[in-house]
């Protein structure tokens, strides 16, 4: 029994974390949004970067081999298992990478034995496009259903989405903690108020117990456990609930400043809203668990 990541997995996580800190700061996430909304106002006004950095990010990830985590070394991949995939995808969630990384890593690359699919070959399915376009960004409109995910691909992508939700939750909590520590009202940091403390303690609590559920689901997939379907659904349901709660708490603790497009929080918040619904929503996954445990 050992419930912890290996040194290799930690090294991979650190490498991906460093890459994303450099290449996927919030202004890159912001640049993936449509330039204007219906009224012609810039959604990301004030923080534009060259849109080429958004496209370039895909190349950086491919170069590092991130999409090939689950592709055998013989096919040019990294030959890791689902636990490593979970570790990497939590980082992509933390950075809110504005690309379909889960789909590339968990579905397209293993199915095509291609560790570095092109961005144009990967995307969210057409049936999900409207949600994606409205809520998150405009950069995913070019997907054709080139690869139809099989059971394992679906389970991997569902687990991977859960891992991203953990990362998103951690990011939103970090943003909120930093904010309430600095922001002063009534002459003191608002983070000294019990009501604010309790909001963020609840957020931390949800993440503390959802994350191990995701790592366990990854391990179940990696070992072909009989309980893999149940464990993946539990992970997705718990991670979605946790990220949703953290998002609500983080937004509330920011007051009016969080309720603006200039502030970064919404970039992460809206991505979490999307991922909660991708690869099966929470109601679906709770039903899967319920059937498995005899409820």
């Amino acid at each position: 029994m050992r419930f912890a990541f290996t040194d290799d997995q930690i090294a991979l996580r650190e490498a991906v974390r460093d890459l994303l800190a450099a290449e996927c700061p919030p202004e890159v996430v912001r640049a993936a949004w449509p330039a204007t909304d219906g009224d012609g106002q810039g959604a990301g006004a004030g923080a534009r970067v060259d849109a080429a950095r958004v496209d370039g990010l895909w190349g950086h990830l491919a170069e590092m081999g991130v999409f090939g985590v689950l592709v055998p070394e013989a096919d040019g991949g990294l030959g890791f298992d689902e636990v490593a995939a979970a570790v990497v995808l939590a980082e992509s969630g933390y950075a809110a990478v504005p690309h379909p990384v889960v789909e590339a890593m968990c579905v397209v690359a293993p199915a095509t034995a291609n560790p570095a699919p092109l961005r144009a070959q990967v995307g969210w399915g057409a049936d999900r496009l409207d949600i994606v376009g409205e809520l998150v960004d405009g950069a995913v409109a070019d997907f054709g259903s080139a690869v139809d995910p099989d059971r394992i691909g679906t389970l991997r992508a569902t687990m991977g989405t859960a891992a991203q939700l953990i990362g998103l939750g951690r990011r939103m909590l970090d943003i909120a903690v930093a904010y309430v520590t600095e922001r002063e009202q009534f002459g003191v940091p608002i983070g000294s108020f019990q009501a604010v403390k309790h909001h963020l303690a609840d957020a931390r609590l949800a993440l503390e117990f959802a994350a191990p559920a995701v790592w366990r689901a990854a391990w179940s997939l990696a070992t072909g456990a009989d309980t893999a379907d149940r464990d993946v659904s539990m992970a997705k349901a718990m991670a979605a609930d946790a990220a949703h709660l953290v998002g609500r708490k983080a937004l509330q603790c920011h007051g009016g400043i969080g309720y603006t497009v200039e502030y970064d929080l919404h970039l992460f918040l809206k991505r979490a809203w999307l991922l909660e619904r991708l690869w099966g929503d929470t109601a679906h996954h709770r039903r899967v668990v319920a059937r498995a445990i005899g409820v």
Binding site: V180, T181, P189, G191, L205
Partner: peptide, 13 residues
């Protein structure tokens, strides 16, 4: 306990 989490785990003032 929530105060403890906020102050000693999250580092709030």
């Amino acid at each position: 306990q929530r105060n403890v989490v906020a102050e000693r785990v999250l580092g709030l003032p």
